[in-house]
Nucleic acid binder design. Structure first.
Lengths: 195, 195
DNA sequence: TCTATCATGTAAAGGGTTACATGATTCT
DNA sequence: AGAATCATGTAACCCTTTACATGATAGA
């Protein structure tokens, strides 16, 4: 009977991740977006409150306290069991080629929240997969550039080269971070399969 | 009498930049977005054609040929004098702190088109300004991180550190590219003031 | 002629931006 | 009590996404 969930927006997942860390009010969440470098999401009430309402009507978040329900008073929200499951399911999604090309921001967001509620092998696998996708993408870019370079204006070339270098750096970061995660957490063994 | 120009979208400027290189049809432009790594803009007709219409009704672009005007036939567009002026005015805008924080993509787009229609000193100044803004931003991030680090999950830290490293790399790119531009173009002298 | 592709467009739905409204709390 | 701030919400507007419609052209 429930409406089709549609696709959750990136903002909704950012809100979920923060609510997963700690129950908070919409205002608190807006303050985070407004006053910290937390990946630039909108602190505008017209974005945040409707997003929270969508999550609430989907049953993913619920008011924390026993409904004081006074008009216009602080209303802290928490993740429900369903919301927690949905959020974890999102975290478990492997990166896709399309996301690498069009939405790295979202991949970073997901990875940043990943150690919150997921077995430690997942982020490592995620980085390994991301690295492969990035390398494949980079190869495509290099091939394109070799052939398109001549038609590009000087500043266009500089931007393109910078883009490729950023990807190379991200590839290196994937490798480095994978090792860092392996070193800190499960020193050895015990990499339980996650069903 | 004309409607307030509102603010042009990033997509509109991407289209302007491509039309400035060469008159083309909407279909051609969509193919570029669909088949090249050109900074991921939408190739969807529902985005491209309305955007072209807006530019046309603003008088920035116009049909190339003497109105064949047959229904559903290819319709190449070119920049008008007004459009060319508007586009150049956009290119001349210096980067802002806000854009550095929220919209690097747009700053890269602008720089990529910059050598098309603007005196060569402009991109160099642009890079110098961008570098200063990035360094200031980076300092803010470092200060924040020193204090917020302890509350962040491991993967969150990794993402944050990667973000800062990307900025450092971009700062280095600004310096390198500024020199490259100075070296290639005006080997010496002749850096004419711009109006 | 039939079909695939070229080429432009429109309609519905949805989310974000901006601006405004309004109730509660706290401090002076 | 008055003012500033906390806190939530709404309304108009605009752009993008998705899906569909439709006309022209080229090749089998």
């Amino acid at each position: 009977m429930s409406k089709a969930p549609r696709h959750a927006t990136t903002l909704e997942f950012a809100l979920l991740g923060l609510l997963d860390q700690q129950p908070q009010s919409g205002y608190d969440l807006r303050r985070i977006f407004a006053t910290t470098p937390f990946t630039h999401y909108s602190d505008s009430p017209g974005a945040v409150y409707p997003a929270l309402r969508r999550l609430e009507s989907r049953g993913w978040v619920a008011p924390l306290a026993r409904a004081p329900m006074s008009a216009r008073r602080r209303r802290a929200l928490r993740l429900t069991a369903v919301g927690s499951r949905g959020f974890r399911a999102w975290l478990m999604q492997p990166p896709t080629r399309d996301a690498v090309v069009h939405d790295m921001e979202r991949l970073y967001l997901r990875f940043a929240f990943m150690s919150q509620a997921v077995p430690p092998a997942v982020p490592r696998r995620y980085l390994a997969a991301l690295r492969e996708l990035l390398e494949a993408h980079l190869e495509g870019l290099e091939r394109y550039y070799a052939q398109a370079k001549r038609a590009m204006p000087p500043t266009g070339r500089l931007v393109f080269e910078h883009g490729m270098e950023e990807i190379r750096q991200t590839v290196a970061w994937c490798a480095r971070s994978g090792q860092a995660l392996a070193g800190s957490r499960s020193g050895r063994g015990k990499e339980g399969g996650v069903s």
